[in-house]
Structure formats: C-alpha cells, structure tokens
Design a protein around this nucleic acid. Sequence first.
RNA 1: GCGCGGGUGGCGUAAUUGGUAGCCGCGCCAGUCUUAGGAACUGGUGGAGUAAUCCGUGGAGGUUCAAGUCCUCUCCCGCGCACCA
Length: 784
Amino acid sequence: MHKKFNHAEIEQKWQEAWRDSDLYTTDDSSNKEKVYVLDMFPYPSGEGLHVGHPKGYIATDVYSRFKKMSGYEVLHPMGWDAFGLPAENFAIKNKIHPRDAVEKNIANFKAQLAHLGFNYDWTREINTTDPAYYKWTQWIFLKLLEKGLAYESHEPINWCPSCQTGLANEDLESDGTCERCGSAVEKKPMRQWVLKITDYADRMLADLDTLTQWPEHIKEAQRNWIGRSEGAEITFKLSTGEEVKVFTTRPDTLFGATYLVLAPEHELITELKDTIQNWDEVVRYIVLSKEKSEQDRLNATKEKTGVKLEGITATNPANGEEIPVFIADYVLAGYGTGAIMAVPAHDERDHEFAEKFNLSIKTVVDEAGTLVESSEFNGMNSEEAKAAITAKVGGKMTSTYRLNDWVFSRQRYWGEPIPVIHCEKCGVVPVPEDQLPVTLPDVEHYEPTGTGESPLANIDAWVNVECPKCGGAGKRETNTMPQWAGSSWYYLRFIDPKNDAALIDPEKEKKWAPVDVYVGGDHAVRHLIYARFWHKFLYDLGVVHTIEPFQRLEFLGFILAEDGKKMSKRWGNVINPDDIVKRNGADALRVYEMFMGPFENTIAWSSDGIVGAQRFLERVNGLGGHIVDSDSEEVTRTLHKTIKKVRDDIEAFKFNTAISSMMIFLNVAEKEGVTETTYKIFLTLLAPFAPHLTEELWHEAGESELIHRQSFPEYDAALAKDDVVTIGVQINGKSRGDITIAPDATEEEALAAVRESKSLVERLEKEEIKKIIYKPGKILNLIL
RNA sequence: GCGCGGGUGGCGUAAUUGGUAGCCGCGCCAGUCUUAGGAACUGGUGGAGUAAUCCGUGGAGGUUCAAGUCCUCUCCCGCGCACCA
C-alpha cells in the first residue's frame, strides 16, 4: 500500500536529532577498525549545487553509514577547495573581496548538503584559503625548495593574455586554449617557480600497478599523461664543433639517419649565428613559428615546414656520413632534447619532410625486423640492435617523458603566497618555518597587473621585508600558488585538522591513512597526478607511511540534464537539488540517484524516474500495515537473499542492484506480509539509502535508539537457499520448457519430473535420448 | 594514429560469470476504483504470428550439449593521449 508521508517534517526532525546526538563525530580513540571514506572536496562556486553534484556524496554517505553500522570507526569529512580564478574573477566583477564571496558560497553549499542528510563530521571541516590550513601548504613548498624540487626558471611558459597569468600544461584544453576563458595561449618567457614532478615520474608510473582498486581507464589516462618513452640519447657532432644531443626510441635505425632537425627554440641556434649562411631566413622562420600560437601549431594541416641551416652539417656517428641540419617546428622544444635524428625510411613524419625537401631515404631495417645496410650490425634483430648501436656510438639508453615539470606560480591574487623572500645579496631565501603562514594581505584591486607580476606587487608594506638571512632589504615573492596546491594534500589534514605544530600527527596518520575509498569524477589526471606526487614527496620526508594516498578510487559518471546535455546555466536545464528535496524528498532523491544505473555511468536525469523512487518509499512507509505473526518461507528466503545482496552490492558500489533487490523484497513482503522483526530488519537494510524515512519508521515501531546506531543485518546462508528451483529443460540445446525440482535433485529425479510434463513428453516420444547433460540447479539438456 | 572502455526492449538497466536473455524501475496498454491525484489497485508489455511456433543481446564467422558471456575478423559510440621522435 502506498502511504504518503510528510518528508519535510521528518527530514528536519531527524537531521536535528542526528546532529544533537553526535552521531557523525569520528572518535580518534576508538578501537574499532578504521575506514576513511572521502569525497573529492568541491570548489564552492557561486552557482551552488545541481542534482549531478551530490551523486558522489550520496554514495559515500551510503557507504559510510553502512560501514558504521557494520562496526567500523568511519572518518567521513568534508571541506572546501576555495582558492582559484573563478572566485577571484567573481570578486573583480562584483567588487567584493574573494574571501567574502567564498564565505557566502560555502554557507550556501553547506545548507544544500545539509538538506540531503549527509553524515559528514563537520568538526573536521577544512578550507584551503584558511591561513591555518595554507600554512602547511606553504610548509610543503619550503620542503620542496629545501630538497631542490622547487626551482626558478625563465623558460617560456604558457601565458593566458586574458587571465594574465602563466599556466601549467595541465591547465590547457586539448586545442591549446586556456581552460578557464578559452583564449589562445601564448608562449611567454618569464620568471616562474617550477616543481620537479618529473623526478617522480618513474615512481608514479610504476606504483600505478599497486593500485589494484583503481579503475583501469584512470590508470591508463595517468600513464598516457606521464607518457614515458624508452630510447636512447645519442650525440651528433656538428661541423662547427658543437654537439647536439637527440633522443630516439629507434637507435637501431641510426644508420638510416639522413639529417638532423632542431626545434626552432633550440638554444644552440643562436650560438651558431655566425656560421649559418642563411641567418635571415632562419630568423624569419623562428619568428614565424613563435607567432603561431599553440593552437595554430596543433590545428595546422600538419604540412611539414622547415629551413636548412646552410653552412652547417652534422656527422652521423654510426657511419661517419655528413648529413644536413634543419630547424622545423614539427620538432618540439619541450620534449626529449628538442632535437631529433631523422630517419625518413622508418618514421612517417621524417618521411614526409624528406620527400618535401628531397632528402635521401635509406632503409636499414627489413620487413622481418632485421638490420640491413648497417655495417657490422647487418642481420641483427632490431630489438637487440637498439642497445648495441647505442653502445657503439657512446650513447646511453634512457627514457623521456611527455610530462613536464609543474609550472607552479600564478600572477594572480587569490592563491597561497609562495613563502620566499628575494634578497639582493642572498638571492632566494625561504621564509623561516616559524614565520608561516605568510598571509595573503588585503589589496585595493584584485585585478591582475598584466605586467607579469601579481597584484600583491603593489603593496609595498607587504612586499618590502628584511632578508631573514642577512637582515638587508628583501622583497617577498609576489606570485601565488596554482589552484591545485591546496587540494594536493587536503586528505591528510582531515585526519588532524587543528594541529598547529605539525602538518599531521604521526600517530594519527598511522591510524587513519591512507584514504580507503576515494570518490569523485572529473580530475582524472591533474588532481590525482599532483596529489600522488606530493604524497610520494611527503613519504620521502617521513610524513606519511604509505606510498599511495588513495587505496581505492571510485569514479562516478555524471548526471546529464533531461535533454541529454550537460547541466548548465547556459542551456537553462539546471535542476536544483533543493527543489527536488522540497517536492519529492531527500530520501527519494538519494534512492533515485543510486538507482539510476551503474555508479560509473553517465545518465540523463529523469523527472519521471524520481517519482518511481518516491513510490518505492511510500510503499515502504505502508509496509507497517502488512505485519503478520509469522513469515512465510518465501519471505524468509527473500529476506536473507536480499541482505546478502545489499551487503555485497554496497561494498562493491553497485547501489543500483542493491536497491533493485530491496524492491523485489518489498514486492514479496507486501503480498505475503512480514513479521515485526523482519520489518525492522528491512528498515535497517534500507537505512543507509533512505536515512530519514527509516529512522522515522524505526521509532514508530517502538524503538528508541537511533536506527543508524544499529548493527547492519547479517544473513543466514542456509535460509537464503531455495528448497526448490525451476530449471530450464533443453532439447538438442534449445529451451523447451522447465521443471521444478530440488536444487540438488539427482538426474533420475530430474528425468522423472520431465516425464510429468505433458508438453515435454510429447517432444520426447518420437526419438530416443542419446545423451543427457544435467547440471543440478542449472540446466537439463537432452540430446536426441 | 596509439591506448582504454562500451554496444542488450520505447528508455535507464539486470543476468548466479558458459546454463531458460530481458530482473528492478520508467514509460506504455487494458480493466477496477474515485478524497480527479505528479493517485492507488489488478493484469499485460522484446519482435513477428490467431496459434503452434519462429526470430532475437551492433554485424559476420568459430568453439561448445549449451554463448550476451569464450575465440577470430569487422562496424559503430564514448574517453585519454597525439607532429611526443
């Protein structure tokens, strides 16, 4: 029976009761086994949540309630990743301090989350923009600096002319535009701080194999991003005496290298100015390729262009042949050594270039993979030849990465100040640890200066300080950290959020780390790469005891708008969870989002679908009207099957089938009636999904303790077993009917059952049974 | 181009991991009822056919008593990387 209920009333009532009972405060001193369940913490945008956002939060809420009921001490916190450009741009536009905007947005987010009944331990709330928090973000930076992993560089970096800040490669769209504003990004040489993430590339790659509870596609995306290539570094001598190092994955083809190509940005080129006979032409080409934005370069028809360096040749170290040298923009400065040996016979790009410039093409590996035209290496297999040829020419086997070091400074206001002082005498001087945090001062204008300096540069009183080393005149670093800094270690701070003496207490770290289940979408590459990098660094410092921060990763699929598009203000298709909570109830929203489909699937919202969840809950609400004195066998069996299914499915994040099995139980329960005991077991089963309604019904049924403090139901395998099963009967492999027998019935019993079935007997009359295949409980196949 | 996922009713999906394909929900159809409600109840709902029956998990082959599930080829969709040497 459907029985409507006033969801708003019971939601409020129980949310207050839970809060007052400290139900969700994590006990550090507990002896129970720990589970750390974490959501990717949100950026508190001004737009608030839409119904897609809470999907992951609902899942972790279900999971952590389930774990608590199963006897674990659960750490399930929430916080805010609140530095970054959107808050700053919003502040500029509306003339308010980003801090005030963030504060307002957080209040709004918190209220929205509260309406859904989440069990976060708010006593551990953190905010990356809080000086007490970013003190430790700065501390990590100082340690990186101390270990030589943070350095100043003047290399050209990605510069967004509209945001007026430098950007990391990770901040660009695939077409080379700024991910924030879509502007074409330029290359601009400027001073910046860079983190040596490449030092950790091998470990980040290798340790992916230890992450057995991560989705394969995420690990694959990380492998692609790190982009390790194995090959050799080989040195070519130029006719001028200089040397050029090239990286190649095919040193076995060295005998086929018929020319050399340098990237237009290659540093050697200016040094060769006096020798290059066509210098004007070369300069023109360099200027032209610089003017091509990253975007043009990527979108170009890929027709090869380049200029030969007249007056310069190189020597192929394998055969002593003199070969021409080119500059061409199909060779990238930022990869390998910025120079290549071109083997047109065995590389498509080199081949295209060689055809265009009429260069010789020399095949050195035949179709069988055996070397030819390679003097003493002829006949050798190409794999073996790689090391052999490299050794002969004095090169070394090495690897190179697509991943570049992390450009870590931003010329913007709303970020963590980089805790460094520049002194004329002493150079770069770290701010002494006891002077942390270096707090972000208030400024008149948050607008970027456009000069490559952050707005902080204008605050003389803040910028001019004594050098901590010599006491002379020093100037603070005015660049700030990128948005990803605070989120690269926040999961640790929840363990010990108020510690002012250390980033984290070692005892607490040992107790709670690592994160057992990490849930989120998006950020497949960046956040996870950065956090893994910092975590490994902290491991080397002895701050953490595990090599990886996140044991298990559950990646969620988004919820699209009803029209199948992404939910966005722009399309006017945003559905606000507040409206759904008001109309259908928080529990209905929770059940529906978990029931929609597999957790990792991207699925469109359906306003009809949520009515289904609501109906289910109304029927649960009516189940109290079906109480009987004893459970039928079917009810008992279904109950125990359902308990097993729900337990297994929550553990595996298969929430959709868990709910489906509870619907099946309800269908049986309504028909047959259930005992009071069974009714209550069912309520506790459903409690993690529909916490408010089940709490209400639990108390209506006469209980006085909270349902969320009950033990999660256990099942009895014997009771879950069917005493009869219906199995299919096939004749010559085709389904022809079924028989109902005991699951462990003998073949004779099964055949006896067949003889009782009229339709089956008719089919068997004409021919004789040649072979019988009988799998108890599964199938009976008769071959005639 | 390289790599990783995935193609099942009108829709979201399920399938004990090789054993009667389509559970659960949405939608739809028919009937009942009336506090005309984002109602509820009963029955039905993969396709074709009056039916027996036949067909059916992107397509084509194969293995097997038995294939959505395993193998080979192929097409399509999504995601990551991509002038990366």
